[in-house]
Design a protein around this nucleic acid. Structure first.
Lengths: 342, 342
DNA sequence: CTGAAAGCGCTTACAG
DNA sequence: CTGAAAGCGCTTACAG
């Protein structure tokens, strides 16, 4: 293999066509005030040399600000929730001729800070961030500078930035009501650690729906904590076995749902105890019965986040938006089981 | 909200610190030949103004080539296979202080071409591409120009570019041997349309392993085509019911595997007919029995692709590499079923 | 140790 | 219709 060839510049094209490089610029930008003969000479030279304008230089001269690239900081692209978000952002950016750089933090604020710095150094036009933690870190100066920015999925203190997130509260209400409507009165809640905003909202939604229906919540049936799917499997097994088991369970997070479904199968109770999960689970329709869920709509979140961002990039200086995206319930079988006679 | 503030430039810092802007440049780049007193004045000014150097301008002046950004063109980021690839690329880029822009083509060559153009216009340092189709399209001039480039997962005509891909042939051999080793002699092959290289390799691997074991392949049990998981569900049902059904099946692609697992459950044969699938399936361990698979290692593919790319960016002009990544077999139950008495 | 010039690849504003 | 200058934000050579 040979060494990569140096890319031709406008000057190279100009020399080849026998004109000034300013004339090449005119042709490239279709300014129209060039004589046809000259245009075709220049076009031919562009073809021969394979010239492609350097967008960076062009934009640098034009104003120094816009790069046509937006940055997306997320927790982990390999997680389907985030990659769907990215896909939504990407589509929206594409429609506007923009590109997306992205980076994963794994929830580490330090990595987030380094990504922010790298993005800012390359002068992205704006930032979409799924924040890792509540500290703004390196984002603070950007927030103060009013760099176009949208947060996804997480509330942040301050409230000076646009936010797009799922309706965790409403989704939990819908899930709980779905079980109540089938006649369940003994409903368990299994959920993630309540430290995060979304987990808190989901448990709040559960309580609120139960209260509205006049059904008392048995505190022994409310289990929360940060565990793996395997850990949830044994936790759920304990709570779902025996005579005092609930007739239905709302599993408010992905791992919790998977572990609980495992547990139900382990106990052979998958057709007797109803389950509704928050968040979609791949393969959820392969299990028998399929798992009824209230999925988030990550792609939609991404589209709306990007739309808001481009609005800001476009100069919108109105008050910060908070946009909440609804989560529709998908019936697959597990959530439609009726309470069995004791 | 107020209008975004203009970012401070070196000149702004210089004015604030009462020095020439060249001195600011020296401090920013830690050139060392600046007196301590001046350094602290400049540093203070940088702090106050929140100055951050413009990487684009810096790199433009330095050589005009490097941007510290690499481009990744893939089919669909929302697909976990590709997002894991992206994650691997991202990690490798991060270690080298680089960023990744990515874009989805949905298999459309036109979109691929537009992405290539957008990436080139912004002067990415190199390109990692999961090609959509066999035509190089807008990639051709970049290939000729020796732009650093690595293809993932697909062979392309020409062979002038580095390639990283999974060992489809070897994986299919391993899967088939796994079934043969358990005593199966009546093994069906269900796979994707043979038009693609990987599908062809997988069926070749199947035949080759069968031949090596001296077991004849029944052509009626070799089924290929491009179908959805639902379509495969009914196709598989037909082939797996009745007395002449095979005792084991190798499902050589994701949708095929999912549909076939469904079919086995529909027929109640999931504990009698063995199944090994190519590619991992989320939730594959939730079904009973778990699905034994030969998963690809997308993250590893991404890491190796990025490593090769950075080697090229670093100036390596050796002959094109072809790197084939092995796929380990993961036992989960379905593949370990022994042939039942007829 | 510090600064004034020139230039990266391009566009903007002014001349001819 | 075409070109010579100036400048985007910075670094690379060259002076002092």
């Amino acid at each position: 293999m040979t060494v990569p060839a140096r890319r031709p510049t406008m000057r190279d094209v100009a020399v080849h066509a026998g004109v000034s490089f300013k004339t090449v610029s005119r042709v490239v930008n279709g300014e129209g005030t060039v004589s046809p003969a000259v245009v075709s000479k220049v076009v031919a030279a562009i073809e021969v040399l394979g010239y492609q304008p350097d967008d960076r230089a062009r934009r640098l001269r034009q104003g120094g600000t816009s790069t046509g690239v937006i940055g997306f900081i997320l927790v982990d692209v390999a997680n389907p929730f985030f990659s769907s978000l990215l896909r939504g952002i990407e589509e929206t950016a594409r429609q506007r001729g923009n590109l997306v750089v992205s980076g994963s933090t794994d929830g580490d604020l330090d990595r987030q800070d380094r990504l922010v710095e790298a993005f800012v150094a390359r002068r992205v036009d704006g930032l979409i961030v799924v924040p890792s933690g509540r500290e703004p870190g390196a984002l603070r100066p950007e927030i103060e500078r009013r760099t176009p920015m949208v947060f996804v999925d997480l509330e942040m203190e301050g409230g000076q930035v646009d936010i797009v997130r799922s309706d965790h509260l409403g989704g939990a209400v819908v899930a709980t009501q779905h079980l109540l409507a089938r006649g369940h009165r003994h409903i368990a809640f299994f959920g993630d650690d309540v430290e995060t905003f979304s987990a808190q909202q989901r448990i709040d939604g559960f309580h609120s729906a139960m209260k509205a229906a006049g059904v008392a919540v048995d505190p022994r049936r409310v289990v929360t904590g940060r565990h793996s799917a395997d850990e949830w499997r044994s936790i759920a097994r304990e709570h779902l076995a025996g005579d005092s088991a609930p007739t239905a369970v709302f599993t408010a997070q992905n791992f919790v749902s998977i572990g609980t479904t495992h547990a139900l199968h382990d106990l052979g109770l998958q057709h007797r105890i109803a389950q509704v999960g928050f968040d979609d689970v791949e393969f959820a329709d392969l299990v028998q019965p399929g798992i009824t869920v209230v999925p988030q709509q990550p792609r939609k979140l991404g589209v709306r986040a990007a739309e808001l961002l481009f609005q800001r990039i476009g100069g919108d200086t109105s008050a910060p938006h908070l946009e909440v995206i609804a989560n529709p319930l998908v019936e697959r079988g597990s959530g439609e089981i009726e309470p069995s006679a004791p």
